[in-house]
Design a protein around this nucleic acid. Structure first.
Lengths: 210, 210
DNA sequence: ACATGATGTGCACAACTGTACACATGGAGA
DNA sequence: TCTCCATGTGTACAGTTGTGCACATCATGT
């Protein structure tokens, strides 16, 4: 008899977020979703929406947090699995791509939110990216691969890296998740981008200060 | 007496496109616009919309063409005004920024469309960017500044350049159009990105082939 | 055991949406 | 001159939307 009852606290809340994400994953844009549509997808009555969120923007903000978790998980995996410095970039890109495929809807939401209509969501995603870039900078500093760069230049480099990868995201989301060929295409291109950037970083000072 | 009559062919069509662009410029997302909303903004009766467009996606596609014109105009101006190779990037970025400020709504639409919900619009914008990158590659070849790069690597470099600038677009659109300080911030950062990329390009072969 | 508060439901309603249809009007080609 | 056609208007309607309100149901702390 404990079947249709409330199972856990926050369960329907999660169902609502998952529903929104699912619709986004099916190609809809988050900005065009309505409360009724989301609740319908979640199998919930519309008015119940307000028990958890004040409006759609609010739900969007919570989704940004969820995205943050995914990104952190990805970062942890990258730190654990990227061992040899020579294949560092190719491996990182591979991990990124596999996480995108595993959380497609979430990254859809991220790509959309970057130019979305809610300023708050936009700033949230941007802030996640900044955090990611600064963590990357820390890792690189720790690995002592870029000792010749001062902090500001290293931050700039990492910023550019994160942006390039984020842009590849839109490539990735534009192609079918099982088109291995095209995915590999994106992978090698993104890797080359990163290599080009780090070649630039390696010679940076020599050009601007010598 | 020729006042309320039809002035020119395609006039209301332009009014509709301008109205959609204006709404987008005010922070709305294109995907969330409705036919009635756009016609209202244009001062047109809703049913008249169908005389010019089959639906909203159709209007979006026409907007991509308009965006194409703006980009080409920008390219022409850059070609005419970027004279000294040493300030090449700073000047190009400046021209880009001034065009963004002059056509804010249009670039809003572009940024949104990159992860928009119409696959066709998405592909259209992407194609404009590819065109832009290839033109850039041609110019660089003509200026003989990158003779050591083969065609494929030059294309990649230009691709990365265009992407980086496009990403800066989202920075730019996120700040007030008269916040000179922040605009300058974006400008110098973008310029440095490009410099970093070209430093990388300058040393590219030596790393991958030597 | 019982009151309480958090959560989910059903119903209602006014506002808005896309779109179909019949009609008005003016310009261009015969 | 007259006729046709592209363009714009007004009315209409069924479906959808956001959201307020009263009620049902449980989980928990006393």
């Amino acid at each position: 008899m404990a079947d249709k009852q409330r199972r856990k606290p926050g369960e329907t809340r999660d169902k609502l977020m998952a529903a929104a994400l699912s619709l986004v994953g099916k190609g809809r844009h988050f900005a065009s979703l309505g409360i009724r549509e989301v609740t319908r997808e979640a199998g919930i009555v519309p008015t119940s929406f307000y028990r958890h969120f004040r409006n759609m923007d609010d739900l969007g903000l919570q989704l940004v947090d969820e995205l943050g978790l995914v990104l952190r998980k990805m970062m942890r995996e990258a730190r654990a699995n990227v061992l040899h410095a020579d294949k560092l970039m190719a491996e990182s890109v591979a991990i990124f791509i596999s996480h995108v495929e595993a959380n497609r809807s979430c990254f859809f939401f991220m790509a959309q939110g970057l130019a979305g209509e809610s300023r708050a969501v936009q700033e949230g995603i941007r802030s996640e990216m900044r955090f990611f870039a600064s963590e990357l900078a820390n890792d690189l500093r720790r690995m002592r691969l870029v000792d010749h760069l001062n902090d500001r230049d290293l931050d700039m480099t990492c910023d550019l890296v994160v942006r390039s990868v984020a842009f590849s995201l839109t490539d990735l989301l534009g192609i079918s998740p099982d088109d291995e060929y095209q995915i590999n295409q994106v992978k090698t291109r993104t890797t080359r981008f990163l290599q080009l950037i780090f070649v630039g970083a390696a010679h940076w000072k020599s050009v601007t200060e010598s």
